[in-house]
């Protein structure tokens, strides 16, 4: 039996729902463009920590939810999140032992890839998007990652997910 199969799932689902709420919360002007992609960070965390229970399938479902709430092409965020989860799960043993600064540094290209995939799909589908500020969530996402990581680790410890 795998270790994390027996664990309770509600803390993870709860965190994902909370992440979705953060994504649909209206923010004033400039903060809107700077909003980090909380759900991508959550998907990265859980698929890194418990890849047997929370990986590509979860990422895909969450992505569909995000597509519906953000009014984007159905499947766009799902595809991007799914690929992000795949990369993380593929390398989870490697990055799990990274110290936090190094981990943060390796989150950056993953978030950049995520944003690029969304950008790419937009381009193919003919949805226009202005350039420069579009990449802001990659930066802010990387900046908030240490906080997210530490907070989720303690959340995981307190709720005994996968213990």
């Amino acid at each position: 039996m795998n270790r994390d199969h027996a664990a309770n799932r509600w803390p993870v689902i709860g965190s994902l729902i909370f992440g979705l709420m953060l994504m649909i919360m209206p923010l004033p002007g400039a903060a809107e463009t700077m909003r980090p992609d909380w759900l991508a960070l959550l998907v990265i965390f859980w698929s890194m920590q418990l890849p047997r229970t929370w990986s590509v399938g979860t990422a895909w479902t969450v992505g569909i939810m995000l597509d519906v709430t953000q009014g984007t092409l159905l499947g766009q965020h799902a595809l991007a999140l799914c690929i992000v989860a795949f990369i993380i799960v593929r390398f989870h043993l490697l990055i799990r032992v990274f110290p936090l600064p190094q981990l943060t540094a390796s989150i950056f290209p993953v978030l950049a890839l995520y944003q690029f995939l969304l950008f790419w799909i937009n381009g193919v589908a003919g949805v226009s998007a202005p350039s420069s500020v579009y990449w802001a969530p990659v930066i802010t996402g990387t900046l908030v990652w240490p906080v997210v990581y530490l907070y989720l680790s303690s959340w995981r410890y307190r709720t005994r997910v996968g213990a």
């Binding site: 399938g57 895909w60 799902a78």
Partner: peptide, 23 residues
């Protein structure tokens, strides 16, 4: 992780089909 690549490929295919029909 068992059958990870397969699952990803299937999900990518579903996503692309969804996006195609949605667009």
């Amino acid at each position: 992780i068992p059958a990870l690549g397969l699952r990803v490929l299937a999900l990518i295919a579903i996503s692309i089909a969804l996006m195609y029909f949605d667009n």
